[in-house]
């Protein structure tokens, strides 16, 4: 008999794999992005089923909220026309499929029910007072303070790098240069041009 949990798991994991396929195979980059967002949504559900609330929501916020928006933004900005002829799959697609199938099978052998059956791992059980966020927070700033600091460094790198790479320099900005304004003088701003006087004989 299938309980709700099982049903939910299979529904969402099926959807997850389908949308993963969608990311790979869809014709347009925009739909790929959408499929990826769907992937993340399904994962969030699955993680919530695991009682990993904090990460599930973080995934939603960080990925769907920020990263995928960035992707979408870039896709829209570049707006690349895909040549229809190139949309075909590669010649060696069947070969890759065999490779992938083999890999999944072998991983199944190592990870499947033989290795991690319920008998061996037990059911997912937490005490009533389990608080996922607290559990994470308890070690995040104690044991893992060094990686946390380093992650700050990574974010700094991302910021510096992204700015250094894409910032096109000041020549495109229109800024007020106060010293320059104050230094303005008649001599270098005003040009007196001598011209022949207007013809007066028109009257």
């Amino acid at each position: 008999m299938i309980d709700v949990q099982t049903l939910t798991f299979f529904a969402f994991s099926g959807l997850l794999l389908l949308s993963a396929g969608g990311v790979v195979f869809s014709r347009h980059a925009v739909s790929s992005v959408m499929f990826l967002i769907l992937c993340f949504l399904c994962s969030t559900v699955l993680w919530l089923m695991l009682h990993a609330e904090f990460l599930g929501l973080a995934l939603l916020f960080v990925y769907v909220g920020a990263v995928m928006t960035l992707f979408l933004f870039v896709v829209m900005m570049l707006n690349v026309k895909i040549d229809a002829t190139k949309a075909r799959l590669l010649k060696y697609f069947p070969f890759v499929l065999v490779l992938g199938g083999g890999l999944v099978t072998m991983l199944w052998l190592a990870l499947g029910p033989d290795a991690f059956s319920i008998k061996k791992t037990g059911v997912l059980a937490f005490s009533e007072h389990y608080n996922n966020t607290r559990a994470i927070g308890e070690v995040m700033y104690t044991q893992f303070v060094i990686p946390l600091e380093l992650t700050a460094g990574i974010l700094l790198v991302a910021m510096v790098a992204a700015i250094a790479l894409t910032f096109r320099g000041s020549q495109q900005r229109r800024v007020q240069d106060t010293p320059k304004q104050l230094m303005a003088s008649k001599a270098n701003n005003l040009r007196i041009v001598s011209m022949a006087s207007e013809h007066e004989g028109g009257e």
């Binding site: 949990q5 798991f9 997850l16 993963a20 699955l46 890999l103 999944v104 991983l107 990870l111 029910p113």
Partner: peptide
């Protein structure tokens, strides 16, 4: 019941799909 193996196999499939 959903065991650990379900999640692990799911993740392995997702991994292989993205690799492909």
């Amino acid at each position: 019941m959903i065991g650990l193996a379900h999640y692990l196999v799911l993740s392995s499939m997702l991994f292989v799909i993205s690799f492909i």
